[in-house]
Design a protein around this nucleic acid. Structure first.
Lengths: 209, 209
DNA sequence: TTGACATGTCACCGATTGGTGACATTATGC
DNA sequence: GCATAATGTCACCAATCGGTGACATGTCAA
């Protein structure tokens, strides 16, 4: 019998991540964590206090939500020179790409659809914070065509991206688009480009009329 | 002690609908149905066979998924005279409106994000069937600008609509859009119009260049 | 009226859940 | 080396779940 509290904490945290990524919240709980960690469940209470505290620990030590750098990727150096149109495209496609990389985040967001509780609230707060930071980090001189009510259009596209990512893994196809092949996803990325371009052109044209 | 099997069946079905609409699948099961119906759970097994059969019965007797008539609403008489652009707008907005009316459907779709099983498969099949019928019922002479890869763009918008509706009731606001007020939803409807218009104009302009 | 069947009630089963107390074992500081 | 605190093990609790068998009670046809 080995006694090493650090190692045990590690085992618990890893088991939690693994469980969330593979099975989601459906069979998630103290017992299943203890079982897959090969550890008595009483230790979870001793080391973390309970499930909520365990989750908080998890949130603190991993990056569940992409920050601006993640979203921009290779385009980061050119941020100041980009137009509103270009930034919109890059950030939306970044959102798609980065979310797909984070299975645990995906599972938490799926769970948010069903139940609101302290666990999901933690991620929601983090997301909100990052959202505000993102706005502040963007170039101040970005010019959007006047008359644009961007919020609902942006909300629609972001919601669409989110929904498609969350549905992937559960279904093969969504409305004729293959969610299991990279070619399907690049068709979606192209659609994002086209929609953003079309949207901006629409307002710019209106202005000059 | 009253003995009326029809009434008992009714009580069970109603309790099931009520439970799904109010609490979703989170605490859903034989026991909770029996409890809220005020009926012994053994009767559920006797009358329906089990939970799956109960759900099938529910699906058969209610319209969980909007058909073309629902989607078109007042625009139905003018279907043959409408352009692809107009039909796209009407159907997308119809989708938004009709889905919002169906809390049980919303809950099932939420559950589909988490777990795939016989219950959710039933709705998925129904949805697919209606989707095919919808394509057949549309005017045959609809002309889409060439070069358009509509599927992924349509998927994005439909996914966005779905996501926003499913998120409502759980959160107040999504990306700056109020999901609890009618004004928020009409901003979203406007955004659908604009995006569709912009998308079509984009390709039509390209063609004439 | 009586017998048979439909309907409803109740008690139980094994499995699983979150949670805790009591105890055994190991590591660590003195 | 020894006491003490940290760590790990085990057994148990009440509650809930889906599911079933045994039996009581009502209804209806012969």
């Amino acid at each position: 019998m080995e006694k090493d509290s650090k190692k045990t904490r590690e085992k618990i945290l890893n088991a939690t991540k693994k469980l969330l990524a593979e099975d989601g919240f459906i069979s998630f709980g103290i017992n299943s964590i203890a079982r897959t960690a090969g550890v008595d469940k009483v230790l979870i209470y001793r080391y973390f206090g309970g499930l909520n505290e365990l989750m908080n620990e998890l949130f603190r030590q991993s990056d569940f939500w992409p920050d601006l750098d993640d979203l921009l990727g290779d385009n980061k150096p050119f941020l100041q020179e980009m137009s509103a149109r270009e930034i919109s495209k890059v950030i939306l496609k970044g959102r798609l790409r980065e979310l797909r990389k984070r299975p645990v985040t995906m599972e938490i967001m799926r769970w948010e659809m069903i139940q609101k509780n302290e666990l999901t609230d933690e991620l929601a707060r983090e997301r909100e914070k990052q959202g505000r930071m993102l706005l502040e980090l963007l170039p101040k001189n970005l010019e959007f065509p006047e008359g644009m009510d961007i919020s609902p259009a942006a909300a629609l596209i972001v919601a669409g991206i989110t929904h498609l990512v969350l549905r992937s893994g559960k279904i093969r196809e969504f409305q004729g688009v293959d969610l299991e092949s990279e070619s399907g996803w690049s068709r979606i990325e192209s659609a994002i480009d086209v929609l953003v371009d079309a949207y901006f052109s629409y307002y710019e044209k209106k202005k000059t009329e």
